[in-house]
Each structure stands twice: as C-alpha cells, then as structure tokens.
C-alpha cells in the first residue's frame, strides 16, 4: 500500500497536523443511509413548511391522482399519539396517500420509516425525503441498531410513525410477509399499532408499472396494544388485521366478519401452491392484461382437485 503525505502549508499548530504514517486512519463514517441525520426535519420550521406542502400540494394532487376513499377514521378517533401506522406496501404512492389520509391531529406529526438503502443512498434524496415526508432511514437488509434507536427516539418524542412491515413494495401485487421490526419498536416505544390497508395503489403506480390514474381506498383499523405480548403474536395479529381490512374493502364488514369467523379470510400473500387463488386474482398481476389465458376460466373450487 502506498502512502502519500500531504503536508500542510502552515506549520503545526497553525496548520492541520499530519497524520502519522504508522497510525491507521479510520475510514470516514458515511453520512448517508442509516447514518443520515434527520433531526432537522422534525424541527418546527421544517414541520411548518412541510405542513403547507402536504395540505396545499400533496393532498390535492393525491385527490386528483388516486381519488382516495378513507374508511375507519372512527377507529382512531380516540387514539392518542404516539401511534405506529402499519400498512401494506404496493407503491411509492402509499406514503403520500397515507399521510394525506391521516386526521389533521396526526398528519403533521408523523414520520415515515423509509428504506435506508433506497431513499437515503444519495445526499439530495436523503434531504428531499426527510423534508417532504419526515422520512427516517430504516435499514431493511440487516439488523441496525441505529435505525432501531432512531425509530424509538421518534416515538419517544411523541411522533407517530408510518412503517411498511412488508419491507418494500410488492413486486407482483400480492402482499408480502410482515417483518418483525415493527413489533420490536412498538413494544419498546410503548406505542399502539394501527393496522392500515391501502388498496388500489398497485394499479396506479405499482413496482415496474407505468403510471395510470385510478381509485384507492385507505382503511384504518382499531389500534392494537402490544403490551405484554410477544413480537411474533403482535406481528401475526397486525398481519391478520390488515388481511381483514382488505377483505372488508373487497367485500363488506359482515362478509369479512363471517370469513374471519370461519377462518376463511383471504390472505394478501397468496400461497404459491394455491394456483387457483392465483388464477382467480388476475387484477393484482402486473401482466394481467398481457397474459393470454391458456385455460378457460373455471369456477372457484374450494377443495384441491
């Protein structure tokens, strides 16, 4: 390894000291990704400016692009901050849609957990998303104490947090399994979890799809108190509740209640072996229109053939 010695023009101590050749120089710590500093985005000036943008630009734009119908606000009418809103994730539209749909008392004090590797990989992106969405970096691919601590700090400061426990946008329109980090943060932060189901954003701007205006539905469920339960229990309840909300949007309250009562709530994440369910839900598929059906459409069969 070659070392080059840069000498200061001014003698020490007036100039910068030279680094001794025998001492290893530490690699400078990246200021991006999970290390990006976001405290400034939760200060009052940033909040005020963001509130103006959210109320006067984002919300009208979302109304035009996604025509959201909001359900379940009564479920959170008595809820108190801090709350973790846990939603399914199908599109970049989910975050502005969800923030726009929140009641005002939550809307301007809600941070968003965003993938550190995607939203915070470049300085301009990190600044932009921190400012526009109050995004905080969440490490998706490895366990990160900093992400965890930052999320906890945000909650301890009385902020609400939007998390997408699927970890990323669905590649095919079907839901993905929920990851456990959400439950850890809720448990340690003492925050209740509000399950949220977002429908219709995949059709508008799904991963790998071109943009197309459409209609969406945002459904807030009743808050879940994580206290005294295991992370596994919490996460499976949140997932089950999101599935139930999805069923209510697709059908109605009573059908969904009957389905849940008989253990037949449709899963957002379809079992790969269940080709009939896959076949019968083409509206979620990115290639739905292009796909040529090789088989005629058959009635739904409950039992394996």
């Amino acid at each position: 390894m070659k070392f080059s010695i840069k000498r200061s023009k001014l003698p020490f101590p007036l100039g910068k000291p030279n680094w001794p050749i025998d001492v290893d120089k530490p690699t400078p710590r990246s200021k991006l990704g999970a290390n990006f500093e976001t405290d400034w985005s939760r200060t009052y000036p940033s909040r005020a400016l963001r509130a103006l943008i959210t109320d006067f630009i984002t919300r009208p734009a979302i109304e035009v692009v996604a025509s959201p119908t909001i359900y379940g606000l009564d479920n959170i009418s008595n809820a108190e901050s801090p709350i973790i809103f846990a939603a399914n994730h199908a599109s970049h539209l989910d975050t502005p849609l969800l923030l726009s749909s929140l009641p005002e008392r939550f809307r301007h004090k809600t941070a968003v957990g965003a993938g550190a590797d995607y939203f915070f990989d470049k300085r301009y992106k990190a600044i932009l998303w921190s400012f526009l969405l109050a995004a905080i970096p969440i490490e998706r691919n490895k366990v990160s104490r900093r992400s965890h601590d930052l999320a906890l700090k945000v909650i301890e400061d009385g902020w609400n947090l939007v998390l997408f426990p699927e970890g990323g946008r669905t590649p095919d329109g079907f839901g993905q399994e929920f990851k456990g980090g959400l439950a850890q943060i809720a448990l340690k932060g003492g925050a209740k979890i509000v399950p949220v189901h977002i429908a219709g954003t995949y059709e508008i701007l799904g991963k790998g799809r071109s943009f197309k205006r459409g209609e969406t539905a945002v459904y807030f469920g009743r808050p879940i108190d994580p206290a005294g339960r295991s992370t596994k229990e919490i996460i499976s309840e949140v997932e089950a509740r999101v599935d139930r909300l999805a069923d209510e949007v697709a059908n109605d309250f009573w059908i969904a209640a009957l389905n849940q009562g008989s253990g037949a709530t449709p899963k957002r994440n379809v079992d790969e072996k269940d080709w009939i369910a896959d076949w019968n839900r083409p509206r979620y598929r990115s290639d739905a229109k292009k796909r040529t059906k090789r088989w005629p459409r058959l009635p739904i069969i409950d039992k394996p053939i």
């Binding site: 009564d74 009573w254 209640a257 009957l258």
Partner: peptide
C-alpha cells in the same frame, strides 16, 4: 360525536355472531 356508542356495540355483537 362519531363513533356513536351503538355502532361500537353492534359491531362487537356482530363479530361475535360471525364467530
């Protein structure tokens, strides 16, 4: 104010009936 207490009770009763 919404939610009316009747709605909360009726929903709970219906959930139990469905179960």
């Amino acid at each position: 104010e919404s939610p009316d207490i009747r709605s909360l009770i009726i929903e709970e009763v219906l959930e139990r009936a469905a179960r």
